[in-house]
Design a binder for these strands. Structure first.
Length: 99
DNA sequence: AACATGACTGTCG
DNA sequence: TCGACAGCCATGT
């Protein structure tokens, strides 16, 4: 799972559910978020992991920082939601739109 | 092994 | 569009 998060390309965002699916555990979005909260690996760009619908989701109480990090990656935000979420939504490495 | 918790998701109002 | 309720998964006690 954490490996999947690491596969998220820069400037792109992935939802917990998407990561769970890529990890082979569809519906385990909560589990993904839970693992992230544990912070098992610092090399995992957790700031690229957002909730469904382009929502910020959570960041251990530092969602503002998360927004800034994404903003630095080129992700535009619309209040508490990404604007071109549909275009920035990374659904997996098999997506020819990415890469 | 079982119960409780949590960075989630989808549907109803 | 926003708020509340129920469902599902992994980890920790």
């Amino acid at each position: 799972m954490l490996a999947v998060v690491r596969r998220i390309p820069p400037g792109r965002v992935a939802t917990y559910g998407c990561i769970a699916e890529l990890a082979g555990r569809p519906g385990a979005a909560r589990a993904v978020g839970n693992i992230m909260s544990e912070g098992g690996r610092p090399a995992v760009p957790a700031h690229r992991v957002i909730a469904a619908g382009g929502r910020l989701g959570g960041y251990g109480g530092h969602e503002q920082l998360k927004r800034s990090l994404l903003l630095a990656e080129g992700v535009t935000f619309r209040g508490a939601r990404v604007h071109p979420f549909r275009a920035l939504e990374w659904t997996g490495p098999s997506r020819r739109l990415s890469r």
